[in-house]
Design a protein around this nucleic acid. Structure first.
Lengths: 131, 131
DNA sequence: GATTAAGTTCAACCATCGTTGAACTTTCAT
DNA sequence: ATGAAAGTTCAACGATGGTTGAACTTAATC
């Protein structure tokens, strides 16, 4: 008997990648800053006080998780602007919301242990057996 | 000028703890199995094919994140049953859902870069200046 | 072309984490 | 008490990941 899988095996890897990308205080702050709209890296270094290379590393991690995108400045190509991937965010909000949904929890109790053997929780079965 | 914080500083650590607890394929599977209701560890070892100590380690991580609870069998105290912490799950579903909400993304563009200096995006301001 | 500025990449370090095997604890059975 | 079973804890290993400083790329300026 196999449990119904929520995430397919190939999707599991993506889920873990995104969750790992989210599981860092600096990157959570980056995402929150990006909620204000397209942002240049000067705001990151100002608000996060990170060296440029470390900021680059975290942005790279978020990029690999497909959570953000970057584009170069039209006037001065040295500058880069970063934005949240709105579609990806919506997708993960939805998927994680469904996965964590407490309504999915079933009231079933495990019957394979000693407790389930000696004290069945099903009242109907008790009635039938005692008839 | 400071960005509006979504997670308070003390809460940030809890968020990271939960996200790190979730960011592992085995633990995601454990959570999904627990969606079927209270479960003894025999189901875990059967479905996950993990050595007992490794399973114990992952359950411990989920416990520390306050995502699951355990209780001993009433008949045979050697057995332990695990359940999802429904309230915690509901709370994180809510919080992560709000945090990731794409509706929070504002359309603002960064004006501090070269692009913003030479080509203002505000049409009104352009009208006024050319008048 | 040389120089400066914005970002990235690289190598190295250190901490964390998943994994493993063994020792240990707790609980029940004989 | 002795022994077995269910879980936990411990120590060690290997891999991953955040951090740092230096070298490198790319792009604009002189």
């Amino acid at each position: 008997m196999e449990t119904t899988k929520f995430f397919s095996e190939d999707m599991l890897s993506d889920v873990v990648t995104v969750l790992k990308a989210l599981a860092d205080p600096t990157r959570l702050k980056i995402i929150n800053i990006l909620m204000d709209g397209e942002t240049c890296s000067c705001e990151f270094t100002e608000q996060l006080e990170l060296p440029a290379n470390l900021l680059s590393h975290h942005l790279r991690t978020l990029k690999k998780a497909n959570l953000i995108t970057g584009r170069r400045d039209n006037v001065d190509g040295r500058w880069i602007y970063y934005s949240l991937n709105k579609e990806a965010l919506a997708r993960w909000q939805q998927l994680l919301g469904e996965f964590l949904d407490p309504a999915r929890i079933e009231p079933r109790k495990c019957l394979c242990g000693p407790e389930g053997q000696t004290a069945p929780i099903n009242p109907e079965k008790v009635m039938i057996e005692t008839n």
